[in-house]
Amino acid sequence: MTVHGPDPDERAPGRAYSARFHWLDRQVVADDGTPISKVDDLELDGRDGRLYATAVLVGPDALAPRLRGRLGRLVAAVARRLAAAEGGRPPRIDLADVAAVGAAVTLRPSTGDLRVHALEDWTRANVIERIPGARHASG
C-alpha cells in the first residue's frame, strides 16, 4: 500500500524561500504540468509596514528591469510595442493562483487563460509564418 504524505512543495505558512533560488527564472507550469512561462519578476505591494509579494510577472516587460543599462531599456521598448498590440496589459499571475513552489512553480487547477506568450505570438505571426514553406511544417 502506498501512503502519500503532504506535498513538500505546497505553499504553507512558515515556509521560507530565497527569491533568487526558488522563484526567479523558475518554470511556471499548469496543474497538469504544461509549461506556461517562467518567473521573470515578482510584484511587491506595501501594506501595514510590510512588503508582500502579490503576483508573478512574466514576459519581456517583467524581465527588462532585471537587465541593466541599455539592454534593459531595449527589451522594455520591445515589450511596450507588444503590450500596445495586446491591449496594454502585461501578463501577471496572481500569487493566489500559485499552488506549489518546487522544481517548478505550479498553478492551481482553476487558473484560466493567462495570455503570457505575447512575444511568441508576435514572432509566430510576423516572422515564422512569413518564411516560405512555413505552413508545410507538421505539428
Binding site: 512558515g14 527569491a19 533568487r20 533560488f21 508582500y52 509579494a53 500569487l95
Partner: peptide, 16 residues
C-alpha cells in the same frame, strides 16, 4: 542586495 528572503504567513508571502 544579492537576495531577498520571502516567508509565507497567514496574510500572504512577505519579504522577511
Amino acid at each position: 542586495v544579492t537576495d531577498v528572503r520571502l516567508v509565507e504567513t497567514a496574510d500572504g508571502l512577505v519579504v522577511d
